[in-house]
Design a protein around this nucleic acid. Structure first.
Ligand code: MN
Ligand code: MN
Ligand code: ZN
Ligand code: ZN
Lengths: 142, 142
DNA sequence: GGCTTCAATGCAATAAATTTGCATCAAAGT
DNA sequence: ACTTTGATGCAAATTTATTGCATTGAAGCC
């Protein structure tokens, strides 16, 4: 969730035209409190405004490429999408329930990751560190 | 790489028949110093012993289910497979090069992750914590 | 030995998620 | 008006993995 973010501003800061579709994709992702799959995003949008599935994929690629959106791997086959780290939104681990596929955001410090040393010594370029906790959510445990 | 592991022992400890195919899949994974995709494993095996792709997938599922092998997500679409943590093989982060798809094992302490607190307080079941560093490997940087 | 059972494997078809190629359309530039 | 360009749509293809069903070969049993 990124209530403090202005999506038009984010797009223009990345020098991307703020088309209706792009704004809507960004809103669906930003207003949600947990990451969504491309299919989720498509279904959500398509209920209200007719949009093509491929357009959603293309917009997601674009937003990921410009680092407005984070592509998050799951223990399953589809990627999930959440807001990329920015001033209001710090990197944090996620929990993935392999039973129901729900992904939750964990607090940035729920799990303490110190990657400073690696960033300094790693012989290559590091773009991001993804931390994912896999298991069964409390809902699915019952 | 798991030179200290006896694959037959591992299989029988999991009460799985040590068929030739299972042993070979486990050897390919265990003798490799970095995780491989199902396609890599299939190609490696199929060069020497004819085997069906589906058999490889099924054996991988089985080995993952019995926790002999770890299914590792990448920044790409395919899963990679490495030896699951065991007495000789501690959990560790991986580096994934999004250019060439090569995955490397990082040392268990190259990146310090403290998940104790989470394990105690999390309202659900935690099966594993996966840490993946994404970027461009030094080879692809040149 | 002959018969049954069962797990392991193969092969073909299918599925799920994503990507590509090509057509269309509308806004912006000249 | 004419041209260019980027955004979108639609169909087809690709990649990765899964399912259904047939075959086979090694126990287990009489
Ligand atoms: Mn998140
Ligand atoms: Mn490894
Ligand atoms: Zn769940
Ligand atoms: Zn590389």
């Amino acid at each position: 969730m990124c209530k403090q973010c202005n999506y038009e501003t984010l797009l223009s800061a990345a020098r991307l035209d703020a088309t209706d579709n792009r704004l809507r994709v960004l809103e669906v992702i930003g207003n949600n409190s947990y990451p969504l799959s491309a299919a989720d995003i498509f279904k959500t949008l398509d209920r209200t405004y007719r949009i093509n599935r491929v357009t959603v994929y293309r917009i997601l690629d674009l937003l990921v490429e410009h680092e407005l959106v984070d592509r998050i791997s799951t223990g399953g086959r589809a990627f999930y999408y959440g807001m990329a780290p920015n001033a209001h939104h710090h990197p944090h681990p996620h929990f993935y329930c392999k039973r129901c596929g729900q992904m939750d955001c964990l607090t940035p410090d729920s799990l303490n990751v110190d990657s400073e040393a690696l960033w300094k010594t790693f012989p290559g370029r590091i773009d991001k560190v993804e931390v994912r906790v896999d298991g069964i959510c409390k809902n699915c445990m019952k």
